[in-house]
Design a protein around this nucleic acid. Sequence first.
RNA 1: GGUCCCGUGGUGUAGCGGUUUAACAUGUGGCCCUGUCAAGGCCAAGAUCGCGGGUUCGAAUCCCGUCGGGGCCGCCA
Length: 589
Amino acid sequence: MYKTHTCGELRVVHAGQKVTLAGWVHRRRDHGGVVFFDLRDRYGIVQITINPDVSKETLNVVADVRFEWVLQIVGTVQKRPAGMENPNMATGEIEVIASEINVLNPAKTLPFMVNNGDTNEADENTRLKYRYLDLRRERMRENIILRHRVIKFMRDYLDKQNFIEIETPILFKATPEGARDYLVPSRVYPGQFYALPQSPQQLKQLLMVAGMDRYFQIARCFRDEDQRGDRQPEFTQLDLEMSFVHRDDVLAMVEGLYTAMIPAVTPHKKILSSPWPVLSYTDAIEKYGSDKPDLRFGMQLIDVSDVFAKSDFRVFQSATEAGGVIKCIVAPDSADMSRREVDELTEVAKSFGAKGLATLAVTAEGPKGTAAKFVKPEEFEAVKSKVGAKQGDLILFAADQRAVVNKVLGGLRLVFRDKLDLADKDVMAFAWVVDFPMFEWNEEEKKWDAAHHPFTMPKMEDLPKFETNPGEIFSDAYDMVCNGYEMASGSIRIHRRDIQFKIFQLLGLKDEEIQLKFGHMLEAFEYGAPPHGGMAPGIDRLVMLLADEPNIREVIAFPKNSGARDVMADAPSSVEPKQLKELHIKIVE
RNA sequence: GGUCCCGUGGUGUAGCGGUUUAACAUGUGGCCCUGUCAAGGCCAAGAUCGCGGGUUCGAAUCCCGUCGGGGCCGCCA
């Protein structure tokens, strides 16, 4: 070993000991005669003191030393002289008086500073290009360590619950449904491809058929879709599956895991309510305008169609006549919002599909806002009392088809959350959303899509609707949500061949196609498949929330940028013609 | 695919039609300094303002295009 101790562990009890340390030069303070520098490793920072009275030689060595040089120090731990302690440092009561310094490796001038906390943070592309330097920063190091603790806790907890960790293949089979696959060409079979798994869904179900009973995996998943702050081309899920369970058994298991984990890994985070609230999908959409509601604050959507049933306001009239609804949210203390701010909100509303945005400000002089002159006094009073608006509040209306109204107001609700700082970042508002529709109508392709995935068990009592109205079939799917993010998604699965076959047919797959793509699943269900279900909590998003980070790139060691590029290694990149030839691939310009 | 925002020394910002030879901080180089901890002091180097075109007597500044980055919508079984 190059060292006897880590930089973070030395305390007064070590005083008098001769130690050897190795690490990076975090800062240096050169007084000409005496020189201090802070040596850093993963475990902390310690002050090294070069005193010419102790060793003239070390002073010469250290003259050239700059930021991020890698040094080995031999020295003696000393309690600092009275008044020289640094209470801001864990090791601030001691210092190491160097007797010998070895330069293990010098460093060029850095493209950005790694020792200045979050001030002057470099452009993200620069950080990603030099990710190995970026990861030296305290914030990144803490995020990566937190991520490790989360995964370690999950492994230990699930192990105690009789789960076993099983690896599944990364090279698997393309699926026609769902996200775009990342394909891997086969050298051995010209024109054929593996696909990287969008999730180990099929494999974990087959492990249940195999009698493994309780499976989990820290699973990498790949989806070739456009990026977001909370979406990467490859991401990590805690994939798990259980046999002989009903929905509530799965929920209880995962809720138990998270309820135990949060205080253990991030004691400062508070879980809003325990047990977690359970919302139906329909309730979530109607009350919060989202299937992943942020429950840290109110501002629920309120249906005021009845209040404006006889309204003279054209916008309201035409919405109700077309079979739509009028709903609103109440923004507290926002009546004095400027015209410009309201215009901005209107733009936001339009981006979610609204044709416009009507507002009513409750002021001392009566109603103000874009809808004020169209609303009768009795309507104003009625809506005020129905939504509980008080003076100073701003009521925002959306009038359109129900789905549009919910989406628009749901979006605006989150804008006000951020604008008015309504949500405490240290609160984790976990909840379950249950009873999802089984299918969604795909208007573009004029066919039914699976709302969750095609292996989800429909509600048994809805089975007769297969022939009549598939849109009214609900499923045993469930989501875990927290603070406006979908944190996990799962379902009770189909374990019967006949039901599974029917689902595929309804999704528009031809019989031969079903056999070709999913024959292995159907066949497996004929050899004694147990009832089973599971879910897959996202690890990146969870760590992002726990670390108070604004996007998941900050909790992934080597993430892609929003264009799905690795800017450090510069991938994807061209390959040698020889490689292409072996893979039987020709590039078409 | 659509839309909005951002590109100024190595890094982070200011400047937003004319005393700007583009300012400040930090970093870099040099000198001074034996108790600092974001050490301090003095000096110096370092940016044709992403790129291309246009408007103008004059463009970092206004307009158009393009490239790069980020957010949102679509997409994400």
